[in-house]
Write a protein that binds this DNA or RNA. Structure first.
Lengths: 286, 286
DNA sequence: GCGCATCAGGAATATATATTCCGGTGGGGA
DNA sequence: TCCCCACCGGAATATATATTCCTGATGCGC
């Protein structure tokens, strides 16, 4: 890695500047290549040199020549630049929040934004979590969940460890909306005893995230066996809770320094509670 | 190219479903790989198998085995799926309307924004709460709070009702960072008994919002009298907790349908915890 | 119109990367 | 406790891919 790396790790912008400067001096074919590359940044980033050459009706070696004409060692280096650029353009691209914090730790801190750098990272992470919520929660699912809860005889809420704040918040909101809900808080190690209450026609709203506490999964299974519906909030499809659930929501994939955001799930909980409260009583929407 | 192509050109969603179905049957290491892949879709798409294996501390061959356990021919096929998914996520990626229409059919009846209207309202509210946090929390204050906590003999955390989720989350994070903190949860009506632990040189981190529960204010007063420092999270300057505190933060002024957001306070709690954890140890946790 | 310089094509080669295969290991059942 | 089987690590191999190099072609100046 400490060798002559051509002009590796140039930024995308720098690449463009260099290219613009030399464009006129390029041969006809090389100009053609340059245009294609600029017009198809995604393909340039992802395809193999051979494929690109093929689409251009040009030999792969010409791509290499092109790269070398710009003082790169090979075409691969150009691809690296384009890939990096691609990743940056990803929505809610979060450049590994943990890495960023790590960097902050190493000193290079300049609070350009006016707020504390650590706070900034979390603000971004939480905002991203909210943004992705938009695409991840479908209207139908949410309505489905609301109707399931509305139709239930009893409502139970469960979340442990990381998910406990969410569960307790949902419980708090429901109670304030005069919705009769029960929080399975597991106080005194009585979780499974509490869970034994769950019966036919009830609903269990459960939040669980890696590493998916066994006792939580157990309770969900128990609820299901007892004939209750299960509404799950978790992070991904392979979560063990998904297959135990009637309706599930995926949120808060985002983590910072090993800590998952809770914002998405919180927001979802708010929407659930208010959605429930809306027709059952007065609540004036803002 | 017309050979048996495994299950090439599966969609990302299909991949997730297949994986979800087989996840339980996978070996320990294969599960580890599955989790990594799902948690790092970008790296999975772009890095070489060797690099991914390296980061996982696993042999490349295990990645192949993983792919084959899912009936793919090799790891490359999985990467193809992830790459395709990556491209789709690109902003302004307009192609594939059919996919979107498909999703709309499956998911929503109308959904102009793609999300449920209620959810949208909360998403905006939470985003606003985060945004205002930026201007409300000064770097100096946050550092001051972090230093106060760092210097404390014992750390106590308090929040009731609406603020309880925040308190329990802060507690959860600190404990996971090996920071010795105590949550005053008031279980069994023992709040004031719990609070009697607070003594000279300790710190109390307290969150309270209208209508500022008396017992919470009482505990804060008690803590102060006992010689402890008080760090407060509340909504406005006239909050009764402000004058009892050594350091205070104002967040979550926003309310929707009578419910105050918690996002700002949550975010602040995250920043506090990580800020504390940063120099005390090695951030890296699940 | 001739010769030189530049350029592109394509096969040959080098390199990177994925995949296979085998032997050792550890955990679970008899 | 022993044996068997599933699993993993690692070297060996196969494959894909990038890069080089040589050759022939093309255009331009003289």
């Amino acid at each position: 890695m400490a060798k002559t790396e051509g002009r590796a790790d140039y930024s995308f912008d720098e690449f463009n500047i260099v290219l613009a400067g030399r464009f006129d001096g390029l041969s006809k074919q090389l100009k053609k290549i340059a245009r294609f590359i600029l017009d198809n940044p995604v393909d340039t980033a992802l395809d193999t040199a051979a494929e690109i050459a093929n689409r251009l009706e040009v030999q792969p070696s010409s791509l290499i020549r092109f790269a070398q004409a710009l003082d790169f060692e090979g075409f691969s280096e150009i691809q690296k630049i384009f890939r990096a650029n691609l990743v940056q353009q990803l929505p809610g691209y979060s450049a590994n929040y943990s890495d960023r914090i790590q960097k902050l730790k190493e000193g290079a801190s300049e609070g350009a934004e006016g707020a504390h750098p650590i706070l900034n990272v979390f603000m971004e992470a939480n905002r991203d979590a909210l943004t992705s919520l938009q695409s991840e929660v479908s209207v139908a699912r949410l309505d489905e969940a609301i109707n399931t809860i509305k139709a239930a005889k009893n409502i139970y809420i469960l979340g442990q460890r990381r998910s406990f704040p969410v569960a307790s918040y949902l419980y708090y909101m429901m109670r304030n909306l005069d919705i009769r809900a029960f929080l399975l808080d597991g106080v005194g190690g009585n979780l499974s005893e509490q869970a034994r209450l769950i019966g036919d026609g009830d609903v269990l709203v459960v939040a669980t995230f890696p590493n998916y506490a066994d006792e939580v999964i157990g309770v969900a299974q128990q609820a299901r066996d007892a004939g209750a519906k299960v509404i799950a909030m978790t992070d991904k499809l392979v979560s063990p809770i998904v297959k135990l659930s009637d309706t599930y929501f995926l949120t808060d994939k985002v983590t910072v320094s090993g800590f998952r955001t809770v914002t998405g799930t919180m927001c979802l909980a708010q929407a659930l509670a208010i959605g429930l409260g809306l027709d059952s009583n007065q609540i004036s929407r803002t």
